[in-house]
Design a protein around this nucleic acid. Structure first.
Lengths: 162, 162
DNA sequence: GACGATTGGTTGTTGTATCAACTAAGAGCA
DNA sequence: TGCTCTTAGTTGATACAACAACCAATCGTC
């Protein structure tokens, strides 16, 4: 079971914690949002990204990038959100292959009602636990990891540093 | 849409990257393992944790803790792994409520065959991207966050610093 | 201006996660 | 002993994600 380049002790320590974190943090955020607002964490990002876009509208492809998801996943999710009246989908006049997703008034209100509690949860789980230095370190570290996980930036183009 | 304590710019920057990362990193690891070894990332942890235990055996509850999962999820997964001959389940003689899960020879061989490629992927996605200092910072940061996400340590008892 | 390649998006299938409900065994205690 | 409470684990229903197959529009190019 010897591998060319095994993990050393320090790496193992970091890895086991990171493993737990990527397991537990999304689950914790999902739980809060489901309980308080009956939406998933992913749906929250969809609402948030649309709310910040001009006209509260984005092409599906652009929205997929901003939510770090695939187009397929997004399509399913937006369908459900459309059924619930949070989002509207209309064919793009400029490119008739494309579809524009727009936040409805109901979706906007949902976001407004949801955001404070969710931000509070993010603070509680993440930022209240970290010093200012650590927040800066976290930015650098996540930036470096994203460079590896998504080198082309096709799923994270909007957040990547120049 | 004003909240008592909104996120400032630095926090937002860190948050959007962390959000992308917890979305993409598990997916990337899952993809590698599925493609190369036909197991999920979670199943890999199950194999790995059992392989390090005495007698390659753990109580379901202990295994759930080491994999940061719920007992319910673990039960389903172990059932499937049992069907594939990777793991065996036997009632614990000492406490007849409890169940011991044991790695089979087949499970051990699966892990041996899988580990090098997976470790290589972990290196590629994580550790090759970080300096030694950053690895240390990551350990501190993840430790601090786990403290918040799982304060009692019921899902992460084995990794928590004293 | 016709043909193949690429882009944009949807849909169906299958597998997995989650939640709540449940059984069964041990612990605490009158 | 008999009662309740807690712990350990399983199961079934429902919801969600991933992958592959697919369609339709557009681009490139000869």
């Amino acid at each position: 079971m010897t591998s060319p380049r095994w993990l050393d002790d320090r790496e193992r320590e970091a890895w086991v914690r990171l493993g737990s974190l990527i397991q537990l943090l999304p689950a914790a955020l999902d739980t809060q949002l489901r309980r308080d607002s009956d939406i998933t964490h992913f749906e929250y990002w969809v609402l948030a990204m649309l709310s910040e876009a001009p006209e509260r509208t984005l092409r599906m492809t652009a929205l997929a990038e901003r939510t770090s998801s695939t187009l397929s996943r997004l399509s399913h999710v937006v369908s459900r959100m459309e059924d619930r009246g949070l989002v509207e989908r209309r064919p793009c006049p400029a490119d008739r292959r494309a579809t524009n997703a727009t936040l409805t008034d109901g979706g906007w209100q949902k976001l407004v009602a949801t955001a404070p509690g969710h931000v509070e949860a993010v603070r509680e789980y993440v930022f209240d636990a970290l010093t200012d230095d650590q927040v800066a370190q976290l930015t650098e570290i996540t930036e470096a990891l994203l460079q590896r996980v998504d080198p082309d930036g096709t799923r994270t183009g909007h957040v990547r540093r120049t």
